[in-house]
């Protein structure tokens, strides 16, 4: 089989007010269905290694994690190489229920924005209130980054993980780098 590579092959930008890096290949499974259904919850927890997150929340543990995407959608994260096995297991467990699980690892790109000014970099690009009191670690937000759809969360203070479509990975990396260029501190947070 051909060698899987991420969209930007771990590109980094460290010259600016925050460090931008592409995270490489990350395993991602989209799971849609009735999020209140016990079989779906059980299968999702088994695949992700964390509990089902509350509305607009994200839980991560090592390489595993799960994010609340919409009232009927969860995003399960795992190591890239485990995605197919986890997907097969999920489908097995959900065979009798109305649910849909798809491996979307290769359709996505993941970035990290790190540093004390990470909030400012994100706030320049997304129409989201990123004040420390409003957006806290653990929250998950689907929105847009400049002109394209994206989602992000904070695994910890000062670190953002950004998920976008692979087809716009270069664009997202570029706008993040521009927003983080040296001397562009705003100083609002």
């Amino acid at each position: 089989m051909s060698e899987a590579v991420s969209a930007l092959k771990n590109a980094v930008y460290i010259a600016g007010i925050a460090e931008i890096s592409e995270m490489g290949a990350v395993g991602m499974i989209t799971l849609r269905g009735d999020l209140a259904a016990k079989p779906l919850q059980k299968a999702a927890v088994a695949a992700a290694g964390v509990n089902v997150p509350d509305q607009r929340q994200c839980l991560t543990e090592g390489t595993g994690g799960m994010a609340w995407m919409s009232p009927d959608e969860l995003l399960i994260m795992c190591a890239y190489d485990d995605a197919n096995a986890k997907l097969a297991d999920l489908r097995d467990k959900l065979a009798g229920t109305h649910a849909l699980a798809v491996n979307v690892s290769d359709a996505r790109a993941v970035f990290e924005v790190r540093g004390p000014k990470a909030r400012e970099v994100m706030a320049k690009l997304a129409p989201v209130d990123l004040a420390p009191a409003s957006f806290t670690p653990g929250m998950f937000r689907r929105t847009r980054i400049a002109q394209v759809p994206a989602a992000f969360w904070m695994p910890q203070e000062g670190v953002f993980r950004v998920v976008c479509f692979r087809s716009v990975a270069q664009y997202v990396f570029d706008v993040l780098c521009v927003a983080a260029q040296p001397g562009s501190e705003v100083g609002v947070f």
Partner: peptide, 12 residues
């Protein structure tokens, strides 16, 4: 009303 987010119109 579906996800409870309040945002400006460019997200919609």
């Amino acid at each position: 009303p579906n996800c409870g987010i309040t945002a400006e119109e460019t997200e919609f």
